[in-house]
């Protein structure tokens, strides 16, 4: 049940990440056309594309982790006995929880401070900074849920490896 909710949110977030890729493509193309054929500009290109790039990366975190597409260097896997490697994997997944939790807490705190102060960007668009930061925080939160799920699985493996 909880696993299903995590699945649905992380897949949805991944689709949103794909949508952001479309958006940055559209925005840059629009800017190039405006600048060359209409001598004007959207005036917010680097700002908006910047939000899209970071949003893409964070929203796709959970799904990339699940699919095993997050790069890693497991050089000890072939060296260590299976039983010990299983525990190392638990540790490795716990590290992901730690880093994810740091991101959720401190990016979230920054978002809240910006919400409270009403901080906006200094461009013509005056985007409240809480919006992009809250998106990054949400992406990091999905990553933490995934990491917890994977740590749980790794723990199961380690325990069953002990029994053999």
């Amino acid at each position: 049940m909880i696993g299903n909710i995590v699945d649905v949110t992380s897949k949805t977030a991944n689709w949103l990440a794909a949508l952001l890729l479309f958006c940055m493509f559209g925005h840059i193309l629009y800017e190039v056309i405006l600048r060359n054929f209409f001598d004007t500009s959207t005036f917010v290109l680097d700002e908006f594309v910047g939000y899209a790039v970071s949003g893409l990366a964070f929203l796709a975190l959970g799904e990339s982790l699940r699919r095993g597409e997050m790069l890693s260097v497991a050089i000890l896997e072939t060296v260590l006995p299976r039983r010990i490697w299983a525990w190392v994997s638990v540790f490795a997944n716990a590290l992901a929880i730690f880093v994810g939790a740091m991101m959720v807490f401190f990016i979230g705190r920054s978002a809240l401070i910006n919400l409270e102060r009403g901080t906006t960007s200094s461009s013509v668009a005056e985007i409240p900074q809480v919006i992009p930061q809250a998106i990054l925080c949400a992406g990091a939160a999905i990553f933490v849920l995934r990491a917890i799920e994977m740590t749980w699985k790794a723990l199961g493996n380690a325990v069953s490896a002990e029994r053999i």
């Binding site: 500009s41 959207t42 013509v124």
Partner: peptide, 20 residues
């Protein structure tokens, strides 16, 4: 280089562009 410059130059009849 900023929003003010952009708005002023538009009002003055030039074609300002935003670039990094």
């Amino acid at each position: 280089y900023d929003a003010n410059g952009t708005r002023t130059m538009i009002a003055a009849g030039a074609s300002p562009i935003q670039l990094s």
